[in-house]
Simulated scan of single mutants.
Amino acid sequence: MKRSVGQILGRAGIRIPLILWTIAVLYPIFWMFLGSFKSNAEIYRNPWGFPESFSLDNFVTAWTNYNIDTSVFNSLIVTVIGTALTLVLAIPTAYAIERIQFRGSQALFLLYISAMMIPMVLGWIPLFFLLAELNLLDNIYGLAIVYAVSQLPFTIFVLTSFISTIPKSLEESAAMDGMSPYMVLWKIITPLSMSGIITVTIMNAIQFWNEYFMALIFLNTSDNYTLALAIDFISSEAQYTNAWGTLFASLVIAIIPVIVLYAIFQRRIAKGLTEGAIKG
């Protein structure tokens, strides 16, 4: 009896704080979601209650009057190109570091790992002048390149952990069958590392979609704004125009893709991180 009571108290001591934390995290999101369907007058009159009628006017206003449609398109381009470019650069690099023995390979790997420890803010000013010299300043494609390079160390670190566990005998057999190193990489190593590739792809995509500070520095014109910059503009406008419903609607538009993406791939992400930690 004492043991069962102790187990109940122990489980309650763990679960109750987790439940309270979950409520504290989810309720502001739920409140924002409800606010996106309210008029400004209703937000002030009944900020914590349900809307009297679920209206899409705030979404229409955000989509048309505040160019959220253009910003969503820009964020989508930056995210897709940045994520794809990261994989194109990281997969061969991780394979070369892990499999090809050359002088300085370990030092190169340590260099990538150490780059993860350097705050990105230290590179913003040099990157600003570099993009200006290359005529890529205020250019979403230049921003996508910066995003891809910024996530290379993390991506290489994760992928090398997966590649290290693939038996070399598979590569040797493929080479005996006449496969070139490039064919071995893309037809054997890449499919067997797919769990890690999916993990870093989702994590990088979420990072690029939500990124704000580099977009603020490297983009100037509103036509090139990403979604984070457009929401920041609406937030500043809301202080003077009381467009809080529009702000909430734009926030809902921004977080829905992230929630859907994570909900679909959450098991793969958890599995990939766990396997990467064990294999590393």
Rank of each mutant, 00 (worst) to 15 (best):
S222P: 15
W21N: 13
S236W: 15
F37L: 11
E171F: 05
W124R: 11
A230L: 03
A270E: 00
G276A: 09
M194G: 10
A84S: 10
P126H: 03
S164E: 14
E52H: 13
L170E: 08
L87Q: 03
E211T: 07
N46A: 13
I188E: 04
I43E: 08
L227V: 00
F54T: 08
R45H: 12
R3E: 15
V184L: 14
S169K: 15
L229K: 07
L26H: 03
G10W: 07
I156F: 03
F50D: 10
S236Y: 10
Y225V: 05
F213T: 14
A215F: 01
V88R: 09
M176E: 10
T61R: 13
S114D: 07
N224L: 12
D223W: 05
F33I: 09
I145L: 10
G49T: 00
G178K: 00
P92M: 08
Y225A: 14
Q106F: 10
A243W: 04
D138Q: 01
I14D: 07
F109P: 08
R99C: 06
I163V: 10
K2A: 14
A243R: 11
Q151F: 11
P126D: 00
Y27S: 10
E237Y: 12
N46L: 07
Y147E: 04
Y27H: 04
F265G: 04
A132W: 05
A62V: 04
G123K: 01
M1P: 10
L89T: 04
E133R: 11
I81K: 05
I264P: 02
L20F: 06
A132L: 14
T165D: 13
E98Y: 00
W186Y: 12
L273Y: 01
A41P: 06
S161G: 15
